[in-house]
Design a protein around this nucleic acid. Structure first.
Length: 227
DNA sequence: CATCAGATCTGCT
DNA sequence: GCAGATCTGATGG
């Protein structure tokens, strides 16, 4: 409440191939304002690219176009939120161009604002055996969504548009610092895939090298990542 | 730290 | 029916 208004990125920022977008997003601030005005934010530290119709691990492999994946086909900058494993949500941002179903999965952020509320969202009503550490708050695609209170209603949200009264706001803020250099980005295979082809092992997972806020399994740079 | 089962539901075969 | 872009708590080293 006591900060500048979030400055969303333009459509142009998202209108690129998913690998490029996955790299560009690293270091950007993901800011969420709840309907009651509370502000939550964090720095994006881990992403994955999903390459669409040719990518066997993409939800749109083979040109699949069902209601569920409609947002991946939408304009770049559209939020694609899907429900999985019976209890989790994961959020992606569509990339490329309208009609080209590629996207970037947000896998982890370093929490920077609203830590207490992020923790409350993650903990829920039941007491925990061991309290969540800051590192546990947003280090995983489903954790991230739970902490930021992102769910089914947010699917299809336009990240380049303003806030929605009932849903609050969600924006990627224009970066204050220079982009993360390629030699500071750790690259590896995507997480949680069950296939066993070239796409399963393709280096499409990106993280800020050395960040302690990424999800497990940790990524090695092979270039001295400082951890 | 590593591995494993269980939770819980939806879209598609 | 069944597998799925996951997470948690428990167990063993």
């Amino acid at each position: 409440m006591s900060r500048d208004q979030p400055r969303p990125l333009s459509r142009r920022f998202f209108a690129t191939d998913p690998e490029t977008l996955a790299r560009k997003l690293l270091g950007c601030t993901l800011a969420r304002t709840l309907p009651d005005g509370s502000r939550l934010a964090g720095t994006i530290v881990e992403t994955e690219a999903y390459l669409g119709v040719r990518d066997t691990s993409s939800h749109t492999y083979g040109g699949r176009r069902t209601e569920r994946v409609a947002s991946m086909w939408a304009r770049p900058g559209t939020l694609y939120v899907y429900f999985t494993y019976g209890m989790h949500f994961c959020m992606n941002i569509s990339a490329g161009s309208e009609g080209v179903p590629v996207a970037v999965l947000l896998r982890a952020i370093e929490p920077t604002e609203g830590l207490d509320l992020l923790r409350a969202h993650r903990t829920g009503p039941k007491p925990r055996k061991k309290p969540l550490t800051d590192r546990d708050l947003c280090s995983g695609p489903a954790r991230l969504c739970q902490a930021l209170a992102i769910g089914r209603p947010h699917d299809g949200l336009d990240l380049t548009a303003g806030p929605v009264p009932e849903l609050g706001a969600l924006v990627i803020e224009r970066r204050k610092t220079s982009p993360i250099a390629d030699d500071q980005i750790a690259v590896g295979p995507r997480v949680g895939l069950s296939g066993n082809d070239e796409w399963t092992h393709a280096p499409l997972r990106f993280a800020i090298a050395g960040s302690p806020y990424t999800s497990r399994p940790r990524l090695k740079t092979g270039l001295g990542d400082g951890v």
